[in-house]
Simulated scan of single mutants.
Amino acid sequence: MNIVSGEQIAKTFQVGKEQHPVLLDVSVAINEGEFISIMGPSGCGKSTLLYALSGMDSIDQGQVIFDGMDLTTLSDKELADLRRTKMGFVFQQPTFLKSLNILDNILLPAMRDERKNVRALTERALQIMNKMGIADLAKRDITQVSGGQLQRAGICRALISNPQVIFGDEPTGALNSTSAQEIMDLLTSINREGTTVMLVTHDPKIAARTERILFMSDGAIVNELRLPRFTGADLDDRMVKVVSTMQKIGI
């Protein structure tokens, strides 16, 4: 069953007096429980597609359906409520409030809906942090943790409202290889518990750990690669298939 789909999505950015098409009649469907990535060169439209499918950015043409709702018909408030309650986001550079500690930053997105259940919400946050291996950092300021730990906190924040889909835009892009692998281990675990995960990445090693890869070029999806569930021992074989597909389509 589809959790999110786009039909003939088109998006154009205006720079000065010039129009720059970014998405060209893109259609895609993502099933519940999928672990999917989008690859392509810089400027190909992969992040724009992620933002369109999550309702973070408007589209010029087409339709986006999330959990049966047409995002193009929703108000800004309805979209914000939907993103807060049914979606989680992990970005390359996590954005946190410097005036709040790690725990409070994680709690913040859910506080609007759970003001009367702060104790239960805090317990949930601490449980997630424990699972992510950062429970001991709860009271630290955001300047007192490493980049990898901050990204783990970003995943905790994305999970706090028990979302149906996690959207990640280059979530490992600012991390070293060890931290990137740890973050992918966490996202894999989250996916196997039933949460749909959709990532944008430029890194074949990251994409190779997902189960479906969409390759984009010049605003369109030009190829797709399906892989079996990642076992941890088959990364090299998966990498060969990803790189081979990239070479075949010239990206």
Score class of each variant (00 low, 15 high):
2 N>Q: 14
3 I>G: 09
3 I>V: 11
6 G>E: 05
6 G>W: 03
7 E>M: 10
8 Q>S: 13
11 K>W: 09
14 Q>G: 10
14 Q>Y: 15
15 V>N: 09
17 K>P: 09
19 Q>Y: 11
21 P>Y: 13
25 D>A: 11
28 V>P: 04
29 A>R: 14
32 E>I: 09
33 G>W: 05
33 G>D: 07
34 E>T: 03
34 E>H: 09
36 I>P: 08
37 S>D: 06
39 M>V: 05
40 G>F: 00
40 G>K: 03
40 G>R: 03
41 P>C: 10
41 P>E: 10
43 G>P: 06
47 S>M: 05
48 T>Y: 02
49 L>Y: 03
50 L>Q: 01
51 Y>T: 05
52 A>L: 04
54 S>D: 06
55 G>R: 09
55 G>F: 00
56 M>I: 02
57 D>S: 13
59 I>D: 02
62 G>P: 06
63 Q>I: 09
64 V>D: 04
67 D>P: 07
67 D>M: 07
67 D>L: 08
69 M>N: 12
70 D>I: 12
71 L>T: 09
71 L>G: 13
72 T>Y: 14
73 T>F: 12
76 D>W: 13
76 D>S: 12
79 L>Q: 10
81 D>P: 11
83 R>L: 06
86 K>Q: 08
86 K>I: 10
86 K>L: 09
87 M>T: 05
88 G>K: 07
93 Q>I: 02
94 P>C: 06
97 L>W: 11
98 K>C: 07
104 D>P: 12
109 P>A: 06
112 R>E: 15
113 D>I: 14
122 T>L: 12
123 E>I: 14
124 R>L: 14
126 L>D: 07
128 I>T: 12
132 M>L: 13
133 G>N: 01
134 I>K: 07
137 L>K: 11
137 L>M: 15
140 R>G: 01
142 I>K: 06
152 R>G: 01
154 G>V: 00
155 I>K: 00
156 C>R: 03
156 C>I: 04
157 R>C: 01
158 A>Y: 03
160 I>V: 01
163 P>M: 12
165 V>R: 07
171 P>V: 01
174 A>Q: 00
175 L>G: 00
178 T>N: 07
182 E>C: 06
182 E>K: 05
183 I>P: 00
185 D>Y: 05
185 D>Q: 05
188 T>G: 13
189 S>D: 15
192 R>P: 15
194 G>K: 08
196 T>F: 10
196 T>A: 08
199 L>F: 02
199 L>W: 01
200 V>F: 04
202 H>R: 01
207 A>V: 02
207 A>Q: 02
207 A>D: 04
208 A>W: 06
211 E>W: 08
211 E>T: 11
215 F>M: 04
225 L>T: 09
228 P>S: 10
228 P>W: 07
228 P>E: 08
231 T>E: 13
237 D>K: 08
240 V>A: 14
240 V>N: 14
246 M>S: 02
246 M>H: 02
247 Q>N: 15
250 G>L: 08
